[in-house]
Design a protein around this nucleic acid. Structure first.
Lengths: 259, 259
DNA sequence: CGTTGTATTGAGTGGTTTCAAACGTAGTGG
DNA sequence: CCACTACGTTTGAAACCACTCAATACAACG
């Protein structure tokens, strides 16, 4: 009997809400990240690179040799299917690593593209491994980053599979705002450097659906559009986004749960 | 799975051992996996565990301490959202590692549940790290496994976001069959130890939709149901599944591409 | 043989997509 | 400065795919 449906966690579960809120404390926000970057700086030969919006750090199929850490800016990850479908697979903020997917078969499996002016630190994978022998903290850092990426991917999957279009957009904005907050960046006035089409691609819906969802979110005052264009928006209260997701879980064709 | 390039591994190779007889294999199928398991056996104190269908290896929230490698059987991974939604997030076959998600914050982020009688090898993470200092191949093994998991998660995302329900089911069956084939197991007669509800949960659709999709696949002779029940099925030709996916890409609401 | 859990199938509803038009913003050059 | 263009966004109406509800069928088990 596989009783999957028991929703009451037998063990202590760490809600992702708690994780991020901890780091979002005004002073300590981004503290780990700063430490991590410092550790890298102290133990490895770094190749710094400044890039502009649209520049690619690496491309799918390219020979793997380096791992990359975001020092500033935001990057998007794009994967391709064998038949050419393209998919925005994730985003990487300050302190995030990129390129892990290349380790297994010696070639990168996706593109990493800068979304604005950014700085990235690159390290040769083999020298990184060597340095890890003397500095175990370094290895711990890498493993934690990979672990987080796996967890994050699963969260995306969960959002995709269980939420309606509107809720998915809300959840995406929550994720984006929290990612910024965790790094001590402003969340009340954010500028998405993504088109509706890209957001839709990432969330598995069409651009019109994204647009409609955001209009609805604005109508319900969960987000607000800035004066300028519809590209920058304000998120007065991140919890309001969470509540919106909860609300939309009740009514519509949402419950894609087991049983 | 990118069509782009030949996968020549740049990572440290384990020397070929003469004896690695994986039962019923086209010679090389499952060869690395056998090697990997042997390496583990030779370098680490293993805790072997036999489990039955429904048994959990670890649960979300439980303190992280061990990594686990599937020696036989198939496991499913289940994640939960803060509000209790549950999500089948992936499957692990022979040679696959489980538990990476626990590294980052010291607690597992999901459940790992056996789908049939299975054997799992468990290792304490800290002793694994120690062994890696003397055996760099071991570290390469772990990193490759994490890397593959990240890539696999992205493939899931891509399938979810760009394929119709029917195509998603076909793609899932292709993935399942290939996972078996890669380990030298039979693919012409497979028994899914999943309910339609679980498949639907994994693929982001309802059980009825899964059922209808499979009926359609059977009608088009891409799959065949065995005499017994509708649980075991035959896949005469894996490429037929691939072609079905391609076919369904042309017509319907499929092109969720950018631009 | 009834019970239970799972699978199949149909009919109707509804959420997303599709198609289409209009609007806003930014950039360019007359 | 104002066309003019290009690109992205918004919004509407209709079509479609997947979901919901419901009934039936099937297999395993006590």
């Amino acid at each position: 009997m596989l009783s999957i449906a028991a929703p009451t966690p037998a063990v202590v579960r760490v809600p992702h809400t708690a994780r991020h809120v901890d780091r979002a404390a005004p002073q300590t926000a981004g503290a780990h990240i700063a430490e991590a970057l410092k550790l890298l700086q102290d133990t490895l030969p770094i190749q710094r690179r400044l890039v502009h919006a649209g520049d690619t750090i690496y491309q799918a199929g390219e020979r793997f040799g380096c791992l990359h850490v975001v020092h500033s800016g935001i990057f998007k990850i794009i994967t391709y299917s064998a038949d050419g479908r393209e998919q925005v697979a994730g985003f990487h903020f300050k302190g995030d690593w990129m390129g892990f997917d290349g380790i297994a078969n010696g070639r990168y499996g996706c593109d990493a593209v800068a979304m604005d002016t950014a700085e990235v630190w690159s390290f040769r994978y083999d020298t990184l491994l060597q340095a890890c022998v003397e500095h175990p903290e370094l290895l711990a850092l890498v493993h934690a980053a990979m672990s987080r990426e796996i967890t994050r991917d699963r969260d995306s999957l969960l959002s995709l599979c269980t939420l309606s279009a509107d809720a998915r957009v809300a959840d995406f904005l929550r994720y984006w705002a929290e990612s910024l907050a965790a790094r001590g960046l402003r969340t009340d006035q954010i500028t998405l450097r993504l088109t509706r089409a890209e957001i839709g691609n990432y969330l598995g819906m069409k651009l019109e659906t994204v647009s409609r969802a955001m209009s609805r979110l604005a109508r319900e005052k969960v987000i607000r559009f800035a004066e300028r264009g519809r590209r920058e928006l304000q998120i007065p209260d991140i919890d309001a986004l969470r509540e919106f997701v909860q609300r939309s879980l009740g009514a519509p064709a949402a419950s894609r749960t087991l049983q």
